[in-house]
């Protein structure tokens, strides 16, 4: 099991939907092939359920709207049993709450941040009955944090769907000081807690909902390559 570190082995960055000529009608993120601990995201599909919980941030609102558009004639019945929790994008601040309100779900709540929304999310999960369907959409950070709460609540894995939309900014744990830096867009970056220069290893912990950051200039202090925007 040894995992002697591959320093500076740069990981392949996910790519945004392509330039002219590619299909721009689908705005969900297209990822390049990546390593195994990285979450795999799908496309939200309406499912039969006794209740529906949608948690989204930023551009994830679009995925929720698309979800109900796909439901067609069943949408009204679903929405009558739907709870939406929405947070503006932590990366860009983009706020599409109005489009979610227009859906007419039984409950539609906007929180200023995930941490503000989390007590409500946990209450909804704790009160959940058999047959709850969960839909998570937006940034990797939002999906990861919400999924952690869903797992802790003991919901079956198959009741949860995810779709990535919007910023690719990462939540990264410094392996040295253990502090988590939110909204990391460049590689390398500076740990917001201990100040070390970290490269973002493509190794993801669902328990922490974070990628791993490792000191890039440990062997040659001060030799830090220029930061590249990899997770826009």
């Amino acid at each position: 099991m040894t995992e002697a570190g591959a320093r500076r082995v740069m990981c392949r960055a996910p790519v945004q939907p392509g330039p002219a000529g590619t299909d721009r009608t689908m705005s969900q993120t297209v990822f390049e092939k990546s390593i195994r601990s990285r979450p795999v995201y799908g496309v939200l599909q309406p499912r039969a359920g006794t209740a529906h919980l949608c948690v989204a941030d930023g551009e994830g609102a679009g995925a929720i709207c698309d979800l109900f558009a796909k439901a067609g004639p069943d949408a009204a019945g679903m929405l009558a049993r739907t709870h939406v929790i929405y947070v503006p994008s932590i990366a860009t601040g983009s706020d599409h709450f109005a489009s979610l309100q227009a859906l007419g779900a039984a409950q539609c709540h906007r929180s200023p941040s995930f941490w503000a929304a989390e007590p409500r999310l946990r209450k909804v999960l704790a009160d959940a009955h058999m047959g709850l369907q969960v839909y998570l959409a937006g940034t990797e950070t939002l999906i990861g944090l919400a999924q952690r709460d869903v797992m802790e609540a003991g919901l079956p894995h198959e009741a949860v769907q995810t779709e990535h939309r919007g910023s690719l900014a990462r939540r990264v744990q410094c392996v040295h000081c253990k502090g988590i830096t939110e909204n990391v867009t460049t590689d390398p970056f500076t740990c917001s807690h201990c100040g070390l220069n970290l490269f973002v290893r493509d190794h993801y912990s669902r328990r922490l909902a974070a990628f791993q950051g490792v000191n890039i200039d440990a062997e040659d202090p001060g030799q830090v390559p220029p930061a590249v925007e990899r997770f826009k």
């Binding site: 099991m1 591959a6 082995v9 195994r36 190794h203 669902r206």
Partner: peptide, 25 residues
């Protein structure tokens, strides 16, 4: 340990904790 973090990997599945290993997957 040969450079792996229990604190980071704890809770992972078999393929997840071996994710950083090159070529073997």
């Amino acid at each position: 340990q040969a450079d792996w973090s229990l604190d980071f990997d704890i809770g992972m599945s078999f393929h997840e904790w071996h994710a950083p290993v090159p070529l073997a997957h």
